[in-house]
């Protein structure tokens, strides 16, 4: 398709095309599958780690802010609809008010910020390592900082733990998530080189 290579002004204001909907659905499927497959053993701090949140960062970094966030919103929609799409076969409306509900909803702004930062930081630098590093930073900020910013207070409201205690709980997952953010950054950069698409 030539359209994906012609630079366009105000691309963000264009209407959704079929291809955008397809890409959103495909990355939603990737996020779901990364939660379904038996976790790749990363051996970080004994925490069972699935790659699901890696899919979230990947969606933002590869598709761009809008479509990445929409892919995550689609996962949330499927979850609410009662499909066991989350890691460990969880699903159903009960997830949202539960202790991890904030992390789930945080994926949407998380993917958006990841995509935005990749656009801002990682398209400028000439050298490959610099772009690589910028993508990793984008995944760390969007996939961890933003997601935790919503998830931690949510846990504390949902369970009655104080903010400090739920922060401590979140820190338990931090090493694994940081590892995933680095992997997501590497993967996204490789994918963008192997198969560049217009990001929005």
């Amino acid at each position: 398709m030539t359209s994906s290579h012609t630079p366009r002004r105000r691309a963000a204001r264009r209407r959704m095309e079929t291809k955008d909907v397809v890409l959103i659905a495909l990355f939603c499927a990737i996020i779901v599958v990364l939660g379904l497959v038996p976790p790749v053993d990363l051996g970080v701090a004994g925490v069972p780690i699935t790659l699901q949140t890696l899919g979230v960062m990947l969606a933002g970094a590869v598709l761009g802010p809008v479509r990445g966030a929409l892919a995550c919103a689609l996962v949330v929609l499927l979850t609410i609809a009662g499909l066991p799409v989350l890691a460990g076969g969880r699903g159903g409306f009960g997830v949202v008010p539960g202790p991890t509900g904030g992390y789930l909803l945080g994926w949407i702004p998380g993917a958006f910020v990841t995509g935005l930062l990749v656009t801002v930081l990682a398209t400028r630098p000439r050298s490959r390592p610099a772009r690589q590093a910028a993508t990793v930073v984008a995944c760390l900020v969007g996939g961890i900082l933003v997601v935790y910013a919503l998830g931690v207070p949510w846990t504390s409201v949902s369970t009655g733990l104080s903010l400090r205690q739920s922060t401590v709980t979140a820190l338990y997952f931090l090493p694994g998530d940081a590892f995933k953010a680095v992997v997501a950054g590497l993967v996204a950069q490789n994918v963008r080189q192997a198969y560049p698409i217009e990001r929005r």
């Binding site: 079929t18 909907v21 397809v22 959103i24 659905a25 495909l26 939603c28 499927a29 990737i30 779901v32 599958v33 379904l36 497959v37 929409l70 689609l74 929609l77 499927l78 609809a81 499909l83 799409v85």
Partner: peptide, 14 residues
């Protein structure tokens, strides 16, 4: 459309 495509492609991606 997005929902039905996602449902169709989850097994495919798997």
């Amino acid at each position: 459309l997005a929902v039905s495509l996602a449902l169709r492609f989850i097994p495919e991606a798997f």
